[in-house]
């Protein structure tokens, strides 16, 4: 740019309906392209800049937004508007996201997305609920044992497929009565639950079927007396159709307009991974 003619961005109200629409599309992008953890919902738009039309047209929205974790796992097909935000007393988790979204011809394209999530501080949870259990590390031995026990109980009462663990998503150590509360995702395998001898030999079905479990596993009473009965509740989601990988097509012309179809979502991401665009919404 010539001297003194710097590119200027516009200051827009964060609660402007157009900005909110862009932010909602950005959060939707995150929810659709995560394979682990929970769906997030928009909480606050922190900053917005709108960059002027480029030579190609359209304008770019640069957003900083805060999100909150809902109680729906990302594999749960429930629309996020129907998912509850996790209340502070259950140890809420916040997302902090940066987006760049192109708006062109009324369509929104996420050019860049980066989110980090972090649980609320112990002090803040204590302020609203002094006795509420805090989030426990997912690699805690007691947590792993509780998940194993819960999954075993679920499979023992399941007359269909054997379900195997996909990921542990949250855990809390409950002091009174002593118990471990866990939430985890599961997936159906080609083994029959009642007949499994070696779960390691079971394979995920081609037509994926996921589920999500919540369980409270009580500490066993010494001496074998009657204790609290463990509670395991799993919701199995509808099967997901097999995704066919695109095959090279020699008849496809190499020139002309680019396909409007969005590229495939990224492969499974490791825990704590950041989702980075570009991708079409």
């Amino acid at each position: 740019a010539p001297p003194g003619v710097g590119l200027a961005y516009g200051q827009v109200n964060c609660d402007d309906p157009e900005v909110e629409q862009v932010a909602m599309a950005a959060v939707d992008y995150i929810n659709k392209h995560r394979s682990q953890g929970y769906k997030h919902t928009l909480n606050q738009i922190d900053k917005v800049k709108v960059w002027p039309p480029r030579p190609t047209g359209g304008e770019v929205f640069e957003l900083e937004i805060d999100t909150l974790e809902t109680t729906c796992h990302v594999l749960d097909p429930t629309p996020v508007v129907n998912c509850s935000v996790r209340p502070l007393r259950y140890h809420a988790v916040e997302g902090d996201c940066d987006f760049r979204v192109l708006k062109q011809d009324g369509q929104l394209f996420v050019l860049f997305a980066k989110c980090d999530s972090s649980p609320d501080s112990a002090e803040d949870v204590r302020k609203v609920c002094p006795d509420c259990p805090l989030l426990a590390p997912l690699n805690n031995t007691g947590v792993a044992n509780a998940v194993d026990a819960a999954l075993e109980a679920f499979n023992a009462n399941n007359s269909g497929s054997y379900f195997q663990l996909v990921e542990i998503t949250r855990a809390q150590i409950v002091p009174l009565p002593p118990a471990t509360y866990v939430e985890f995702a599961v997936a159906a395998t080609d083994c029959v639950a009642k007949e499994v001898t070696d779960p390691a030999k079971c394979n995920l079905l081609a037509e994926k079927q996921y589920g999500f479990c919540r369980a409270t596993i009580y500490e066993k009473v010494l001496g074998g007396g009657p204790g609290n009965a463990d509670e395991v509740t799993c919701t199995v989601f509808p099967t997901q159709p097999v995704v066919l990988q695109p095959q090279p097509d020699t008849n496809t012309p190499t020139s002309g307009a680019a396909s409007a179809a969005p590229p495939p979502p990224p492969a499974n991401l490791p825990a704590g991974a950041k989702v980075v665009g570009p991708l079409v919404v």
Binding site: E20, Q44, I45, D46, K47, L68
Partner: peptide, 27 residues
């Protein structure tokens, strides 16, 4: 605006464009 001497002109409510409203609660 025309005001009497010694009386501040009302500036109206201060609109802060950002950050926007909190939809649920602040963490």
């Amino acid at each position: 605006k025309v005001v009497q001497p010694g009386v501040d002109a009302a500036t109206g409510p201060l609109v802060r464009p950002c950050p926007g409203r909190i939809r649920h609660f602040k963490v």
